[in-house]
């Protein structure tokens, strides 16, 4: 929006006392952006698979490097976190967890879920690799 700097702005981040909900909401956006970047990677993976074994081998090699694995780990966590906070927002929309304490409790449930689901996913991946 076009605005002139001399006009008053509504109170912003610096004026409010930090609250878990603010961090949760910010992280929801940040993980959303991370997932959008991950979407580019997923597209590359799909397109490479369609192009043939050589192109697919290149993207698989990149995902297998330390940086690739770290990106995948970050992507897994971002997905489960965004999934959880998204679910929390859907719950808000139907009027659940709107209390002062219950909204924060739902937030912590999401954090625990995201960490646990990420760990479980990677443990399952390692188990699949081990069985093979």
């Amino acid at each position: 929006m076009a605005y002139s700097s001399s006009r008053p702005l509504s109170p912003h981040l610096s004026i409010y006392k930090m609250h878990p909900g603010m961090i949760m909401s910010g992280l929801h956006r940040i993980t959303g952006v991370a997932l959008t970047v991950g979407l580019v990677l997923m597209s590359w993976w799909l397109i490479a698979a369609a192009m043939g074994p050589d192109a697919f081998a290149r993207v698989q090699w990149l995902l297998g490097t330390v940086i690739g694995k770290l990106a995948l780990l970050g992507w897994t966590f971002s997905l489960f976190y965004h999934f959880g906070t998204g679910l929390r927002h859907l719950a808000f929309d139907v009027g659940l967890f709107l209390g002062k304490d219950s909204s924060v409790r739902a937030g912590w449930m999401v954090v625990v879920f995201a960490i646990a689901a990420t760990g479980l996913t990677w443990a399952a991946g390692c188990a699949v690799l081990y069985v093979k």
């Binding site: 698979a49 074994p53 697919f56 081998a57 897994t76 997905l79 999934f83 998204g86 679910l87 996913t121 399952a124 991946g125 390692c126 699949v128 690799l129 093979k132």
Partner: peptide, 19 residues
């Protein structure tokens, strides 16, 4: 919600799979 869980589950089940 279901689609992303299905995708993650599928990718995990294909860990280390060849082309």
């Amino acid at each position: 919600l279901p689609l992303s869980l299905w995708f993650v589950f599928s990718i995990v089940s294909m860990a280390g799979a060849n082309y």
